[in-house]
Amino acid sequence: MKIQIKKSTILIGLLLIVGFILPRFAGEYYIHISVLVLFYAYMAVSWNILGGYAGQHSLGHALFMGIGAYTSTYLFTVIGLTPWIGMWLGGAFAGVIGGFVGYLCFRYGVKGPYFALVTIALAEAAVYIVTNIPSIGGAQGLEVAWTGNAPQLMQFDGKSGYYYMILVMTIIAVWLSSWLIKRRFGYQLLSIRENEDAAEALGVNTLRLKIQATVISAVMTALGGTFFAQYFTYINPRAVFGEGPSVQILLFAIIGGIGTVWGPVVGALVLIPIAELSRGWLGGTFAGAQILLYGTVLVLTMLFMPNGILGLYHKFLGKFQNRQSDGGKSEAL
């Protein structure tokens, strides 16, 4: 038997090796940037399951991030529950909310830009609801009390601990995402994105699948929310439920290549180091410069490489296999 090793396997292997040994060589600052890359890659992969595979573009995914962050942090602050358990409770809570939101929207046939609007409205409503509940910190938010190096409480001395945690989360997320897309569930999600009526006519239970995708995506996003809270040790309503995080969750998937397994990772890998380093160069003088860069890249991406970095890559390879489309329905102008 001939042993065949694909180029992609080698590449992934190299990535993994570099990923695991990186903290041995890199300073705290570069580990911090790597944590951000992995965190946003993780969030984009999570968003991509609903937004990229199923084609339901949530613009309010911070709702789930916030639920995760607030659940684990609140339980930790009030009853001292370890975030390792709190994160799963947050995930479960987000899953229930996600299922409810998905059921309501898809049951009533909300689609396209209208789904985006509903999700924005839900996340914004969450900002105002949490702001007005003083017992969970109100507008001031919650602080994660530092207890020293306590891995059992998801607190690590130095950044390496966080780095390995989010590295493992991202590996699992990418693996899950690539596993899902190779089986019935994934293909059926794609068929919904490509042409919902045709999928339904061929026996695809589109309502159930869209709800399932929402739940999976919501749970994953909420788990990321707990990580965010533990890493930054401070959360407030705008920072985790606001439009800022909502956009940042999906930004890297769009720029990397929506609906692909690796697009979200590539997007974060390319863009975050640039943004962080340029912030370093500019110093703190330009508040908003980083988001300005993201906005500019987003607009340029939509104008000149509508299928993201991976789309462009495949185009150059001559085997254009973009996974993103409007279902061939765009009319001629």
Partner: peptide, 26 residues
């Protein structure tokens, strides 16, 4: 009981095989 559509409704960005697989998964 399955139908086809007057205006063809392929899944444009999936391969022909994958298109048919969606039906076969039933």
């Amino acid at each position: 009981l399955t139908r086809t559509f007057q205006i063809v409704q392929p899944f444009p960005d999936m391969t022909v095989l994958e298109n048919v697989m969606i039906g076969a998964y039933t």
